[in-house]
């Protein structure tokens, strides 16, 4: 066909070898960073000391370093997937749980749990946060129905405003009830307090990531819009409901374990979109891998930059994530999806 010459851009077709190399790079980075994460900390745990039979080091590894590393990987991977799924559902590249009020709703849920059932287990708190996250996602989806899909920037703006309102309500009650500080502790993104017995909720997030993976094609079709999905015989409402659950559970379980990790669900899927496109079945392993690598790297920076002290992960993620996001927006030739 000669009218290949008529295309607006003459971008070369993305070749597979390049993808393979980038994939291998992400895999290698994941292995290296996860390994490094195991051996960074105040106490000396080194491969040598483990081989020498140092039982203290082995205990520390099992009780703290391994859980922390696993938690970081699960949170990074699943939160990035939550962002991807939400972007497909809303058909907008600028949404993720923290730009749509979902995170704020879940935080409000945490506060409600703290006030009404002070002695509640963490699982219970997570349950309440999940319910609030579900409500938050539903409210957001309802509100943006009134916003034309093509108003790309308006959709996240509405979400941020919604989040602002819910966040203000939460802050008000937390202030009046003298819970501002403990709410701050919960919601400040950090994996410092993660150890055995305090991260396992993240497996719920991992389970939801698997659900998203299994239903990947359905989310791709949903990303084409309601009319396309209906034409292809898809039960639009059911897939939207599944997506809502995936987003709420992932948001809530990461929130109770590690707090708010901003930008992750925005930056990672957008970078992957540039690399391999938006076919969810193809992109979801990339999103998971890159999400894990991103949070691992940020966590390691948070632990080493003021060694032996830690700075909050959310600060590192916020700085790097905002930088990356600006780059995505201003990148030469960006079509500003």
């Amino acid at each position: 066909m000669t009218d290949a010459a008529l295309t607006r851009t003459d971008a070369p077709v993305r070749t597979r070898p390049r993808r393979v190399w980038t994939g291998a790079l992400i895999g290698a980075a994941l292995a290296v960073l996860a390994g490094a994460s195991l051996f960074i900390g105040v106490s000396d745990v080194t491969p040598a000391s483990l081989l020498a039979g140092d039982t203290d080091a082995a205990f520390l590894l099992v009780a703290s370093r391994v859980p922390r590393t696993v938690a970081v990987v699960l949170a990074g991977a699943s939160l990035a997937i939550a962002g991807l799924i939400m972007q497909m559902m809303v058909r907008n590249k600028f949404v993720e749980p923290s730009t749509t009020g979902v995170t704020e709703f879940a935080t409000l849920g945490m506060l409600v749990a703290m006030v009404l059932w002070p002695g509640m287990t963490v699982v219970g708190k997570m349950g309440v946060a999940t319910v609030f996250g579900l409500v938050g996602t539903w409210v957001f989806l309802r509100v943006i129905r009134a916003v034309p899909v093509r108003q790309l920037v308006l959709v996240p703006l509405v979400g941020i405003m919604l989040g602002g309102i819910v966040g203000a309500v939460t802050a008000f009650f937390a202030y009046r009830l003298d819970l501002l500080q403990s709410l701050g502790q919960w919601s400040q993104g950090s994996f410092a307090s993660v150890m055995q017995g305090r991260y396992e909720f993240l497996w719920f997030a991992a389970a939801m990531a698997v659900v998203a993976w299994v239903a990947a094609d359905r989310f791709s079709v949903i990303g084409l819009g309601e009319e396309f999905a209906t034409n292809l015989g898809l039960n639009y409402r059911r897939v939207m409901a599944i997506g809502t659950c995936v987003i709420a559970v992932i948001t809530a379980s990461v929130l109770v374990t590690a707090g708010i990790i901003p930008f992750l669900g925005l930056v990672v899927p957008n970078i992957v979109s540039l690399l391999v496109g938006d076919n969810v079945r193809r992109s979801i392993p990339w999103v998971a891998g890159l999400g894990a690598v991103f949070v691992l790297a940020c966590d390691i920076i948070a632990r080493t930059v003021r060694f032996p002290y830690e700075i909050p992960l959310s600060v590192v993620v916020g700085v790097i994530g905002a930088g990356l996001f600006l780059w995505l927006l201003l990148r030469k030739g960006s079509r500003a999806h």
Binding site: L152, G277, H337
Partner: peptide
């Protein structure tokens, strides 16, 4: 007027 926001091949 099919408008697809997703980057699909």
């Amino acid at each position: 007027d099919n408008h697809i926001a997703a980057r699909l091949t």
